[in-house]
Amino acid sequence: MINSKIFLQGLKSNLGTRSPTVSLAACFIALGALLKDAGFNLQQSAASSFFTYALPGQLVMAESLLIGTSLINIFIAVWLVNFRLYPMTVSLFPLLKHKSQPKWKYYLSSHFLAVSSWLVAKEGYQKIDKKYRIDFWIGIGIGTWSTAVIMTIIGYLLSEYLNKDMMIGLAIVNPVYFFCMMIGAMKNISISIAVVGGTILGPIVYLFSAEWAILYAGLIAGTIAFLFGDKNGSK
């Protein structure tokens, strides 16, 4: 059903100097502590990372609960902030497709789609036989997802020992890690324009429309990058 050798290869991608584990651990420890402050119990905190596993959306949920936002508004705000997962899935899963693999593997494993696993998979998929790429992906995903759940629990339990300075230190790790990984991924002109354009437009559009900023900025910068790459023959 799953090629265990390839699965383990995917799992091992989460180790080493290019590993997302340190960054994931830092941000989910911070999230665990934050959820405790927001009134969650241990089971609820673990369930949040288990079922959602998308940090920006979980942050929006916790902060919305603290200010008493309605459930429908939480749903819309989370959908908007996590909408990036849609283009990310469409830009990864066609690379993992193979006609011999059952569809349920793709549907279920889409839950593992997050920035960290996506970047690791994008970097490593070419080394894997097309037939087993989905098993490689499941290995990466199980590794990052379980790290997130375990670290949320640890963060919750450690929250009394984490002062404000430590929380701020943990919070910077996430954007720094992802920026470095994105810079490492800038291997052609269209991806470079997409990354630089998105970084600049994200905060600018936020000034005009806080909720829609990521979606608008992503669509505008991504389309410009695509058109430029298409015109100049970039792959």
Partner: peptide, 14 residues
């Protein structure tokens, strides 16, 4: 391209 730019937009905002 949209996936990378959306992610970059989120990081820029963060």
């Amino acid at each position: 391209c949209v996936a990378y730019s959306t992610l970059a937009a989120l990081l820029g905002r963060m």
